[in-house]
Design a protein around this nucleic acid. Structure first.
Lengths: 230, 230
DNA sequence: AAATTTACTGACCAGTCAGTCAGTAAATTT
DNA sequence: AAATTTACTGACTGACTGGTCAGTAAATTT
């Protein structure tokens, strides 16, 4: 495995960005920057066209190198795919971990902070593409899907579970099936991301901010105790 | 274009179902049944592997014919794809149309009936695969995605819009951004279907019935008026 | 039962693309 | 400045697959 410490090298070495210059650019030599440039290009194309329909020539061209160079850094197309997923997961985890740290306030506010934070730091960034990619290719790459599931989804569910149990313990929320609530709370976020990379291009424009506000509003109101129960 | 009136011929002629018989079955001649058999096989494989990764030889084999036969009924791989989508949409529309017809009762009940009905008649059937397929391939087939969007999604949103406006008009629901509510209400259903065809195979088992119950419960409670407003 | 039509087959072709590697040029060392 | 190392290139190949079509056999007509 050639890939390591991809994320750090990204911002360190972006100087020239003449990938698709017509002029035969003087052959650049930037070993450290290549992997992240290649995975970034690959993510874009994988999300847009899917894994099978993406040509490695196109990935290399978008990264401004030849296909041969791609094979200096990744053993195979599949290895490139897994690197894309892995690189997309690490920042997601980092973002998630620092969310719940010592939050003070209502559980409703905590819930809102978690959902908004996820959107700001993952859903609304280019990391969101990873979600669609995993969904689309999970059957072709069950181990990558499993990896994503175990590391991202399970952990994200834990965060929400904590917030929900906290609210129920304090009496702020009514008793509910917590596990189902977790899934119901996450689903609109995932759907919003998926939407942005699929049907969004059919002219339907969902306003993410308004969508999120409505979702959190409905969710919190739905969870809170009230006199007229059902 | 060879494809026409696929849906009608479907139920008309399903008699023998020996697609993957080991014995060299005596060459069958069933012109009318072929198209739907082929689209059914194609749907399965497209959903599982994606369009590009699906071999037409495999589609034909699953339908119990040779690849040459496939080309007697469909002009190209892309034509097959579009037939799959089209055949998946028609029943969805039929199911949707007969939902709202003269419903009596609370708007909450109507909402619940709409969501449950969609799940029963579309999400929980093999038609659900079409949703994942559209999502995954929308960028590769923008016109098919547009078609699906215009005919299925827009119409589905109209049904929900009517239910929500009805509830607001009667005072049962509070004032809200109706358009966002529609999307938030649909998202978990779509996500549930997508889940069943993707990450579901990672060992995570969502109970659809419980998920739906929780979603409807939260949604209705979130929509209803209450004293302690926010 | 001979002739014709119809549904179907599977070997084949042509284009595509993942993966290879001998060669090139920039950088570094001597 | 010569020698060596390193990053990179792009032409090539072999396998694969969408699409074709001459041929076959069941059904139908004569």
């Amino acid at each position: 495995m050639v890939v390591q410490s991809l994320v750090e090298t990204t911002s360190a070495a972006i100087q020239e960005h003449d990938a698709q210059d017509a002029a035969p650019s003087p052959r650049r030599r930037r070993k450290d920057a290549r992997p992240s440039e290649l995975t970034a290009a690959a993510l874009d194309l994988f999300v847009e066209k899917g894994f099978a329909a993406t040509r490695l020539d196109d990935v290399a061209a978008r990264a401004g190198v030849s296909k041969g160079t791609l094979y200096l850094y990744f053993d195979s197309k599949e290895a490139l795919f897994k690197a894309v997923i892995e690189e997309g997961i690490v920042p997601a985890l980092a973002a998630a971990e620092q969310q719940l740290a010592g939050y003070q306030g209502t559980s409703a506010g905590l819930l809102q902070a978690l959902l908004n934070g996820w959107w700001q730091q993952i859903g609304n960034t280019h990391l969101g593409g990873v979600v669609k990619l995993i969904i689309s290719e999970s059957r072709n790459f069950p181990d990558a899907a499993q990896y994503y599931h175990d590391h991202v989804i399970v952990r994200g569910r834990s965060l929400l579970r904590a917030a929900l149990n906290r609210g129920i313990a304090t009496g702020e929320f009514r008793e509910m099936n917590v596990e189902s609530c977790i899934d119901v709370a996450i689903a609109p976020l995932l759907m919003l991301v998926i939407w942005r990379y699929s049907l969004c291009f059919c002219g339907n424009d969902i306003d993410p901010a308004e969508f999120l506000r409505t979702h959190v509003d409905l969710l919190v109101n739905g969870l809170q105790r009230k006199e007229t129960n059902q």
